[in-house]
């Protein structure tokens, strides 16, 4: 009987070929929503994140701001993102970077079941940012990547805030699979501070991209952290009136 039902389903299938399958229809405009902000868009082909791909954000001063910049444009276009395992990020700074906070979900401490949670998150949202709390077996990593490919979501791995994770070997052990793209904040410049006076008015980081999937010769760009992405307008000059 079960076989018969299965056959009936098979005969049903062609008439449904008109409507794309559920998962696909949800992501039909995925490449549109995964567009990057103008500065980062120059680094990758098409200027967008590839649905089903993986990205690593390398350690370095400015990597949190880089993460915010990376997810801000997709979120503004209606995508959802989850940041997992980064308890210290400042959501307010994310908003200042142009992140649509209503579609950003935070899981500060996923605990021991982070693999399972990541898999569930890949089903649910377009961008999953993970700071793996401990090292991950190659089989598990591959399974997560396969899930991301199937659900056409993007897995973004970060090195967290620990300064010692700049060591490539440690990063490799935590996440054994090579990602499509690695974005690293390689330089930072801060302005406004003097010896004993002034206050921080602006900052900029240099972002370098490497990996399998790059856009030809351009491999680095500058991000002005005191500018909302795409606005071209610097923040209004800061005066000390707010300070008592």
């Amino acid at each position: 009987m079960a076989l018969q039902t299965a056959r009936a389903d098979v005969t049903t299938a062609p008439s449904h070929a008109t409507a794309p399958s559920h998962a696909q229809s949800l992501r039909s405009d995925a490449t549109d929503t995964l567009q990057l902000s103008p500065e980062l868009a120059e680094l990758v082909p098409g200027g967008c994140l590839r649905p089903g791909g993986s990205i690593r954000i390398g350690a370095g001063v400015g990597h949190t701001s880089l993460l915010f910049r990376l997810i801000s444009e997709p979120l503004a276009r209606g995508a959802w993102a989850v940041i997992m395992g980064l308890p210290d990020i400042n959501a307010h700074a994310a908003v200042e970077c142009g992140v649509a906070i209503e579609r950003l979900v935070l899981i500060p401490n996923p605990g021991t079941s982070w693999l399972e949670v990541t898999a569930a998150l890949l089903d649910a949202v377009d961008l999953v940012v993970v700071n793996p709390p401990h090292s991950c077996r190659p089989t598990d990593a591959r399974r997560l990547l396969a899930r991301a490919r199937q659900r056409r979501s993007v897995l973004i791995l970060t090195a967290g805030n620990s300064s010692d994770s700049s060591n490539e070997a440690i990063t490799r052990r935590v996440w054994p699979e090579p990602p499509d793209l690695v974005f690293t904040a390689t330089g930072s410049r801060w302005q406004g501070l003097e010896r004993g006076h002034g206050c921080l008015t602006s900052g900029a980081i240099t972002v370098t991209a490497s990996g399998r999937r790059l856009n030809g010769p351009i491999s680095s760009c500058n991000l002005n952290l005191s500018q909302k992405p795409g606005s071209g307008q610097p923040f209004p000059p800061v005066t000390a009136t707010g300070i008592r």
Binding site: S25, L26, A91, E102, L104, I107, N109, V117, V125
Partner: peptide, 25 residues
């Protein structure tokens, strides 16, 4: 549809982790 899918999925994650582990800001 994307919102609805995200909300359903995140409800599921809340089931996995408990309600004091998943937040919006």
């Amino acid at each position: 549809q994307v919102d609805r899918r995200a909300i359903r999925g995140l409800d599921r994650v809340r089931g996995l982790l408990g309600s004091s582990a998943i937040f919006t800001a």
